[in-house]
Amino acid sequence: MRNLLAFLALGAAALLSAGPGLAQQAWPSKPVRIVVPYPPGGNVDGAARIIASDLQKSLGQPIVVENKAGAGGMIAGDLVAKADPDGHTLFLAANGPLLFSPTIYNRQLYHWKKNFVPISRVSLTPLLVQVHPSVPARTVPELLALIKAKPNAVTMASPGAGTTNHLLSELMQKATGVQWTTVHYKGNAPATNDLLGGQVQFNFDQVSVAQPYIKDGRTRALAVIAPRRVPWLPDVPTLEEQGIKGVEGQTFTGLLAPAGTPPAVIEKLSAALKTVLDSKAVQDRFYQAGAEVAWLSPQQFTAYLQKEEDIWIPIIKTARITAE
């Protein structure tokens, strides 16, 4: 009897000590939700759907993409921040919902360092400067000279206060010392329509959105706002090539989990996502959408987010950008 009790005690101790490991090995034990802060369509939703099918194969559980739009993306962010930190609810975030919206809306529902654990960056979509064909400028320095000469005659179309496009415009004004008139629209579609119609003279937009208009001559690209030229528009120079330094504009997508998610789950997710993004088929799908894969380790993604915060939050505060 004494031997039996000793055996049972040892068995119980072994089960207790193995408990956390068994729990981690069991992940995922049910479908995994990827919450997207925008409606279906667009580059963020597209990125989630590109990675979902391959992650599902790798992890052995269904991956469900769930769209939760509203409040500058904060409805989705708040939902994930408050979710159980068990690795079954994830946030496919972008610049605005993750970094900008809590400051712009003055609603500190979450902060990325406090409420989330970065898993990996997923994709990058570069932006560019484009003008209506009636604008005589062929380079960004020529556009800046035109604005200086006729400060009230050149207007920039923004899809809304606090968007990446708008913040990039503010950063550009700060870097060059040239001020222009910004016209805010309720979304990118009406802003683009007025640019195409010549009611405004230029804008900042994603390469993926602008590319068709550039190729058919309805707008003219002056520069890509990225560290290097982009393969979709190889003849368009960068800002730095035109003598303007310190200005970069790319929208990112990245995957995060609620704070407190076990490190083993984060590492497993990161490794699985790297395998997915290393796939040529997946890279081609991002390329066709006007984006490029951009995996980073959890540590690298954390450093990247800190750098982005250090650049853009001061711009928001200095320009006093708030949501209406």
Results as ranks from 00 to 15, higher is better:
G46Q: 09
V209A: 08
V209E: 10
K113D: 09
A191M: 07
S58G: 10
D310T: 00
P237N: 04
P39D: 11
V122S: 02
Y105E: 12
I315Q: 07
T302L: 13
L15Y: 00
A149G: 03
I63F: 05
V32Q: 04
I266V: 15
S120R: 03
R138K: 15
K268Y: 11
V135C: 05
Q250K: 12
I119F: 01
N203H: 11
A14D: 04
P314R: 06
Q61P: 04
A289R: 01
P212E: 02
E241P: 05
V131I: 06
T182N: 15
R121L: 11
L79E: 15
Q288H: 14
I50D: 01
K215W: 06
A294R: 02
G41W: 04
T125W: 01
I51V: 11
W112A: 00
P37I: 04
Q61V: 05
P262A: 02
N193H: 14
I119H: 09
P258Q: 12
A161L: 02
S279N: 15
E292W: 14
S17Y: 15
E241Y: 12
V200C: 05
W312R: 12
I244N: 08
A175M: 14
D194R: 08
L124F: 10
T251R: 02
G197D: 06
M172Q: 09
D86V: 00
V236W: 01
P141G: 14
Q306K: 04
P231V: 00
S17E: 11
W295I: 00
T89C: 03
E292C: 13
A323F: 14
Q242F: 10
F204K: 06
G260D: 03
V64W: 03
G160W: 07
Y110A: 12
A83D: 03
A221W: 04
D194I: 03
P40I: 09
L195K: 04
P227V: 03
G46L: 02
D278F: 13
A323V: 08
L277T: 10
A175D: 11
I266G: 10
K57F: 06
I311R: 13
E309M: 07
G249I: 08
E292Y: 12
V247L: 08
G87K: 13
I75A: 11
M1H: 15
Y304P: 00
L109K: 08
Y105W: 14
K148V: 06
V129C: 03
V140F: 05
Q206Y: 11
K215Q: 15
G162L: 01
P102M: 06
I321V: 14
I244R: 13
L90I: 02
V224A: 15
S297F: 14
Q61T: 07
F7D: 12
E170A: 09
T253Q: 04
D78L: 14
L269I: 07
L128A: 11
N203Y: 03
S279Q: 14
G42I: 07
I214N: 08
K148L: 07
M1T: 15
P97Y: 03
